[in-house]
């Protein structure tokens, strides 16, 4: 069933998605630009706990999900930094931890609305191996959809799962139709009432931890095909391939439409999951184009992932359009090619 067309902000879409996903509890500490996810959840009657900081909010999510509660949190910037401790625990213990992250400018408190500088933190933060599922929506409609998907993936595969967005998408208001056809994965207690389970997040011997990390990585690799998502736009005859994620992917489409009018054969690969990265789909295009141009509002956090994931035998040259902490309108991308 498709919902009616409505005018809504990104925040409102996230809150609606959390309710529709069957989330029962939000633990959080307010921070721009995700505060309205928290206040919106509360206004709609969601159960919540405002903790003393993001460290506590993160560990509260860990506790909630172990007890079988479909819990989540939302944070940003310095709050996202503080939450890495709990996210690492969720990675180590394989907890279905769902976080909505609204990227803001960094380092530190930076700016409060927009950047794409929390990619590395979301994908590889904490003292682990980056075994996380990270979704990067490009539109309000996709923000709703991927928030729904995030809860399902978290409970199905049991890795920390992040919807990585930004204040431009959260605070903008647009027309969207919610996809209400998605079925929800069930939550359940990871330790049952009365059950005695020796479940560790600290190990005595290096070998034990090594075994656990290798096992978790093997599982992560095995779900990659199912989880990894990407979008190709105008890539069939493309000679230049743009790579952009999140809302920059939207600006890239507008730029491609303009550049194609001027005769340039240009297309877009948009990773929808940053972890795992859909490298099979990417490689297929990257190997046949003349150059790859990675566009992002950071000094190379997406580029780092792309370079690491691209098959080593592909020798296509890579160029970069980087505006750290700054929005990238289509015109900025068009100008690069003229």
């Amino acid at each position: 069933m498709q919902d009616v067309k409505k005018l809504a902000t990104g925040h409102e879409a996230v809150v609606e998605a959390c309710f529709d996903a069957g989330a029962k509890m939000m633990y959080g500490y307010p921070i721009t630009p995700t505060t309205e996810v928290f206040t919106g959840w509360i206004k709609k009657g969601g159960e919540y706990l405002q903790t003393e900081d993001e460290i506590a909010a993160g560990f509260a999510v860990c506790g909630g999900v172990i007890a079988g509660q479909k819990a989540f949190t939302a944070t940003a910037g310095p709050g996202h930094v503080l939450m890495q401790d709990a996210l690492s625990m969720a990675e180590g213990m394989r907890l279905p931890f769902v976080a909505i992250i609204g990227q803001r400018g960094g380092p530190s408190s930076g700016t409060v609305i927009y950047s794409q500088q929390e990619v590395t933190l979301a994908c590889f933060g904490g003292n682990g191996e980056g075994l996380r599922l990270v979704y990067s929506p490009s539109t309000i409609e996709e923000l709703y959809f991927l928030t729904r998907v995030a809860f399902n993936s978290a409970w199905k595969y049991q890795y920390p799962t992040i919807v990585l967005t930004d204040g431009y998408l959260l605070k903008s208001r647009g027309v969207f139709v919610a996809d209400k056809t998605i079925e929800n994965a069930e939550s359940y207690p990871l330790v049952k009432e009365g059950e005695k389970k020796h479940w560790r997040n600290i190990y005595t011997f290096e070998e034990e931890l090594n075994e656990a990390v290798v096992r978790n990585k093997k599982d992560f690799d095995s779900i990659k095909k199912e989880v990894a998502r990407s979008e190709n736009y105008q890539t069939d005859d493309a000679e230049i391939l743009l790579v952009a994620h999140g809302i920059v992917g939207g600006a890239a489409k507008d730029a491609i439409n303009e550049l194609r009018k001027k005769g340039q054969k240009i297309g877009l690969f948009r990773p929808i999951t940053l972890r795992p990265f859909d490298n099979e789909a990417f490689d297929k295009i990257a190997m046949r184009v003349k150059k790859v141009v990675i566009v992002e509002s950071s000094l190379g956090q997406l580029a780092q992932i792309v370079r690491a994931e691209m098959a080593p035998e592909i020798a296509t040259p890579i160029e970069y359009i980087q505006y750290p902490a700054l929005g990238i309108e289509a015109e900025k991308i068009v100008d690069y090619f003229l």
Binding site: Y168, E329, E331
Partner: peptide, 9 residues
């Protein structure tokens, strides 16, 4: 569909 919330002109 509008792809990006900001513009430069």
């Amino acid at each position: 569909k509008i792809n990006y919330p900001k513009f430069s002109k």
